[in-house]
């Protein structure tokens, strides 16, 4: 077995580690980097619990060979509140009661973040499209949708505020 030296940015930090070429990104993140916020629900790309953001796009980390992360910029749930302040999405999920068992939550928030990063004013339909790959069995999605709508507003207000102060 030849090892492969993987270099990538994970949650803002440069990560260098030897991996087996056939390892999946989900396993490297969970088992090697201890980022267990990346949840394993099906390992077949059918539930979205392992969703992370890779080079700006939401992807199922269970379907991505770790080797493909070479040189990539990766964000997981652990990385979006690194400064100690919760991300507006996290805040809005908490305040709206959008979290029940919490198992789908990290993936759900990462899908929502990938959406809002690119599209700060999503329609209801765009939110639903962005989250349709994340199954949730607890909430009926009602409060999740509301949380994302509210987070979009808050993020817009923050960035607008920044814009006017310049």
């Amino acid at each position: 077995m030849s090892y492969l030296q993987l270099k990538c940015i994970v949650n803002g930090d440069l990560v260098e580690l030897d991996i087996e070429p056939s390892e999946l990104l989900i396993d490297v993140l969970r088992d090697r980097l201890n980022l267990t916020g990346v949840k394993k629900g099906c390992k077949k790309g059918e539930c979205g619990a392992c969703t992370i953001i890779m080079n700006g796009d939401a992807v199922n980390s269970c379907l991505v060979p770790a080797a493909r992360a070479q040189g990539a910029v990766i964000e997981t749930i652990e990385g979006i509140s690194k400064t100690g302040r919760l991300h507006p999405l996290q805040q809005c999920f908490i305040e709206n009661g959008a979290i029940q068992c919490g198992y789908c939550t990290p993936g759900m928030i990462m899908s929502a973040k990938a959406l809002l990063d690119k599209n700060p004013h999503p329609t209801k339909q765009e939110i639903r499209e962005a989250l349709a790959g994340n199954l949730c069995r607890c909430t009926g999605y009602v409060k999740i949708e509301k949380a994302v709508e509210q987070a979009a507003k808050i993020i817009f207000e923050i960035t607008e505020g920044r814009g006017t102060s310049k």
């Binding site: 790309g45 979205g48 969703t51 796009d57 939401a58 992807v59 199922n60 379907l63 991505v64 899908s111 990938a114 499209e129 962005a130 989250l131 349709a132 790959g133 994340n134």
Partner: peptide
């Protein structure tokens, strides 16, 4: 196809 995450890849 599939979902947003699938279609991204």
């Amino acid at each position: 196809v599939g979902s947003q995450q699938i279609r991204n890849i």
